[in-house]
């Protein structure tokens, strides 16, 4: 604005600048007043914070099948079956991923950290979508953590009520930008496993609009977030708590990295899935036996201090 005023009329610009300075001074005084007020209110917090550095930890989800890194095949590939279930049914994976949110850390001496979550039209803070097809999505950096010793991390697989009921949101929750969203039963899919299974009875379906369902297709979409007492609604959100093994230090001098192995095999083995009858899961109730396997899929492998 000052620039515009200068171009128009240099003598007016001077008056404008003075006016601007006056306004700025007023603002500064106002801000000072607010600051004094804030200090008065939050004296305790601030004193505590003065002794604290804020640290970070990188949580790295290593997506695997058994002990090997998860291999992705093209959708519809019925030649290369990389894996077998414990029922000896061959399958491959074309797509695997999950939402993770609500990270917290806790320590043996009462340290605690809760990551901020805020879903708005602009962004989805604290919500992450980890996808095998997007390796960088496996690295989640938690920051602004009070310095201290921590021995546990917990997180929720899926997007809870607060996220859904924030309404249309951006970032990884934007359905026009790849979010896994159920339109008909509004909510986000907590975990997807898709691929081909040798025993899937799915036949090729031409859907007429350029898309098709390949033969031998298997699709498992696990979602559902509602808790309604006295109803049959299924809440498939799972909050998992993993131990670091021994406490780790978080603070200015440290850059710890926690490696959580996510093994896709228990998804089918712990649910005792039989592809001949179970190959297309798209509702909360049908997803429940698979949500029950999340606990066995996520294992704290190791931590670099």
């Amino acid at each position: 604005m000052l620039e515009i005023a200068l171009r128009r009329n240099p003598s007016q610009a001077c008056a404008y600048a003075q006016n601007l300075m006056y306004k700025t001074m007023k603002k500064i005084i106002g801000m000072f007043a607010i600051a004094v007020f804030a200090v008065a209110c939050k004296k305790e917090d601030i004193q505590q914070n003065q002794n604290e550095y804020k640290g970070e930890i990188l949580v790295n989800f290593d997506l695997k099948a058994g002990s090997s890194p998860l291999a992705l095949r093209a959708a519809g590939d019925t030649v290369n079956y990389d894996y077998n279930t414990s029922n000896n049914q061959a399958f491959n994976v074309s797509n695997f991923g999950f939402y993770v949110s609500a990270f917290t850390l806790s320590g043996p001496n009462g340290e605690s950290y809760t990551q901020e979550m805020k879903a708005t039209a602009e962004s989805a803070k604290g919500y992450y979508k980890v996808e095998a097809s997007n390796p960088s999505s496996s690295f989640i950096n938690l920051d602004n953590i009070p310095e201290g010793s921590y021995d546990q991390v917990s997180f929720t697989i899926g997007v809870g009520e607060e996220g859904v009921q924030s309404g249309a949101s951006g970032g990884v929750l934007d359905p026009a930008n790849g979010a896994w969203f159920w339109n008909w039963n509004a909510g986000y899919i907590a975990m997807k496993v898709e691929g081909s299974a040798a025993d899937s009875p799915q036949e090729f379906v031409d859907q007429g609009n350029g898309s098709s369902i390949p033969a031998k297709r298997m699709e498992f979409h696990v979602g559902g977030w509602k808790d309604v007492e006295g109803s049959m609604f299924v809440n498939n959100l799972k909050t998992l708590t993993l131990d670091f093994g021994s406490p780790i230090l978080i603070g200015e001098k440290y850059a710890p990295e926690a490696h959580v192995v996510v093994d896709v095999l228990p998804f089918f083995n712990a649910s005792n899935n039989d592809f001949t009858t179970s190959y297309s899961v798209h509702s909360p109730m049908a997803g429940a036996p698979f949500a029950a396997t999340f606990q066995s899929m996520f294992v704290m492998d190791h931590v670099h201090q």
Binding site: V164, Q165, G167, A168, P175, A176, N177, F181, N183, W184, N185, A186, G187, N209, K226
Partner: peptide
Amino acid sequence: GGVTHLDFVPINAIESEIEMKESLSNVV
């Protein structure tokens, strides 16, 4: 009653094969 927030209502009409038959991302 499948949709629990008004913001999500239009997606159903936009993406329904028998209504507007369009993808939300293409509208964007």
